[in-house]
Structures are given as structure tokens and as C-alpha cells.
């Protein structure tokens, strides 16, 4: 056997591999393929995939669309705050320094909505969790020049909190918004 500081002698390629190392290669190789297969398969049969249609959009257009949506929407008072009730299944949430346009929004539990995620200025992070179960949280990256339409169905009525988790400037730590998910609106 050679050292790592000297050139190996002779025909080193043809020296057989120790049995235990061969077995490990088999285990590691099988595991590699297995986790690839699971990840790939989950995009077909799984319920949690960061997947949705995307469109290039300039910030002015994003602003116009969000405003149209807000004009069409009704509002409801929850916990002393006005929340948007989306006119249909589309929910516009647009980040800007340092707030979320379109939040708070009131949603029905168990109904699938299309979240239209975007930003007016810089990148933001869309980080959501229900108030009563902090370990259930998801995080998506938001671009200023792209609209991302991600369907979501919130099963459990709760108040969901959105915080920005991409640095977007000084003041970023206060960028917060809410969803109210209720059985009925």
C-alpha cells in the first residue's frame, strides 16, 4: 500500500479493492440513488413541493396588479385589524422594504389558494409559520422581477406569521405580516 506523498508504484489501478471497502461503496452508492429517487418521486406524489408557475414582471406591473387585486377585494375586521378577503382563489402578497403588501389576509381553511408572490424593490424571504406550532415553517425566496404563483392549502385554522428572512436592508428585522386562517369567513 502506498502513502499519499509518494507516487504509487506499478499498476495501481489493477490492485483489487478490500472487501469491506467494496461493500461500503455498494451501500453508499445505493443510498445515493435511493435519496435521489425519493426526492424525484416526491415531486410527483408529494404534497409539499416548492413548485409553481413563474412569470417575468417588472415592478411597476407587479404594483398595478397588486393594486387591482386590492381594489377588488373586500375586507374583514379580525383582532381589531382590517384583513383582505381575496375576491377569488388568487392571493397577492408583495414584499417591499419593510412590509408585505396584501397582508394581513383572511383565508378559509381547507381551500386551495394561488399565492402570487413578488416584490417591488429587492429580494425578500417569505417565511411562514402558524402561531401555535413554530416547527411547521416554510421559506421561499422572493424576487423583484419575477412573479411566482405557488398553490397552498392551509388545513389548520390559526394565525400564520410571515417574516422576511432574506436581508433586504436596515429595518429588515421588522418586516412582518399575518394570515388569518379561519374555518369560515
Amino acid at each position: 500500500m502506498s502513502t499519499p506523498l509518494d507516487p504509487p508504484k506499478g499498476n495501481w489501478w489493477d490492485i483489487p479493492v478490500n472487501r469491506r471497502e467494496s461493500i461500503w461503496l455498494g451501500i453508499a452508492g445505493a443510498w445515493s440513488l435511493a435519496i435521489f429517487g425519493w426526492m424525484s418521486g416526491f415531486t410527483r406524489f408529494g404534497d409539499q413541493n416548492p413548485v409553481g408557475e413563474t412569470y417575468e414582471v417588472d415592478p411597476d406591473e407587479q404594483w398595478a396588479r397588486t393594486q387591482d387585486y386590492l381594489d377588488d377585494a373586500e375586507t374583514i375586521e379580525i383582532d381589531g385589524r382590517e384583513a383582505v378577503i381575496p375576491p377569488d382563489d388568487s392571493v397577492y402578497i408583495t414584499g417591499y422594504r419593510f412590509a408585505w403588501e396584501g397582508l394581513p389576509v383572511a383565508l378559509e381553511a381547507g381551500r386551495q389558494y394561488d399565492l402570487h408572490l413578488g416584490a417591488y424593490d429587492v429580494q425578500h424571504g417569505f417565511s411562514v409559520r402558524p402561531e401555535d406550532s413554530l416547527s411547521q415553517q416554510i421559506n421561499l425566496q422572493i424576487f423583484p422581477d419575477t412573479e411566482w404563483i405557488v398553490p397552498m392549502t392551509f388545513e389548520d385554522p390559526d394565525t400564520y406569521h410571515v417574516i422576511c428572512n432574506e436581508y433586504c436592508g436596515s429595518g429588515h428585522n421588522g418586516m412582518h405580516g399575518k394570515f388569518y386562517v379561519r374555518e369560515e369567513l
Binding site: G46, D47, Q48, N49, P50, V51, G52, E53, Q112, Q136, I138, V150, P151, M152, T153, F154, E155, D156
Partner: peptide, 8 residues
């Protein structure tokens, strides 16, 4: 998989 449904 404990999370709500996300994605198309």
C-alpha cells in the same frame, strides 16, 4: 410532511 399542502 406535517406541513400544509404547498406547490403545484
Amino acid at each position: 410532511t406535517q406541513l400544509w399542502q404547498i406547490g403545484a
